[in-house]
Design a protein around this nucleic acid. Structure first.
Lengths: 144, 144
DNA sequence: TATTGTTATACTCTATAACTATA
DNA sequence: TATAGTTATAGAGTATAACAATA
């Protein structure tokens, strides 16, 4: 059986999990392509994910409205997103990925995953099983 | 026994682990204090960790020497680090944490950890055991 | 009057290039 | 000549404040 951890063990575990996650994120970021800045990539992903207005994106990414406005402008100038006025509400601007924007998302994701996949493949089947379970637990924690 | 995963399962696992880590990192960052910028915090931590020159810090944090020089200057002006000329080599400047710098590290870490500890404490003992093992595996992967 | 989005302006972090001081 | 560090300058991202357009 798994013994109940002490308070101190729980605290240490939390610290170690946080550190491990931050380090993995950092490595993935460094080892990935730099053809697009992280915050721009994040916005493209959110648009693909169903957020189609500047206000929604600003809230989701926790930046100010002017800042998001600027980022969107740059993405539009690079041909990665389109801005079309909302026919139902003239104040809104509807954002959509262009084919180039969608391709960019796929490309960057593929490169990120390549680094991680190589590392995971080198682990034992048992270690991979641990990570499989941990990924599900962490995803649940992060989504709370 | 743990069955050997297929190639596709390994790839999916890598993607899920990466995503989980990035989401946890993101949540921890958002839920933490913003009394110090992340890159400044990182430099303080590296100094505490034994890196005491601008060049070593710049390499470690993967920023340019002038950029690190600037960050260090700001940290010194805020009273978080001291800069003393190296008696053995006049080109070097030895960096040390001030008591205020060390206190800042402790304070920010405590707040970061508070968020994560609460979440980890809410998990079952068995789930905590999975995370314990996963944290060790991921730390090893990130350190490669 | 409230909401959506933009422009104006300023601050921070970053990089490359050029410089100083030491070895 | 090489190394450690700084200053000069410019570019990108961010924020607050002020503004325009629509509801």
């Amino acid at each position: 059986m798994t013994p109940t951890p002490t308070r101190r063990e729980v605290s240490d575990l939390a610290i170690d999990v946080r550190l491990a996650c931050m380090r993995i994120s950092r490595r993935v970021r460094f080892e990935s392509s730099s053809e697009i800045a992280p915050h721009r990539f994040g916005v493209l992903a959110k648009i693909e994910d169903g957020l189609h207005t500047a206000t929604a994106l600003a809230e989701s990414e926790r930046v100010s409205a002017p800042s998001m406005s600027r980022t969107i402008k740059a993405l539009a100038e690079d041909g990665l997103v389109t801005r079309t006025p909302d026919p139902d509400d003239g104040r809104n601007v509807i954002l959509e990925l262009t084919p180039e924007g969608a391709a960019m998302l796929r490309r960057v994701r593929r490169r990120r995953d390549a680094w991680m996949t190589t590392r995971v493949a080198a682990l034992s089947a048992e270690e991979q099983h641990v990570l499989r379970r941990a990924a599900d637990i962490l995803a649940r924690v992060a989504a709370e």
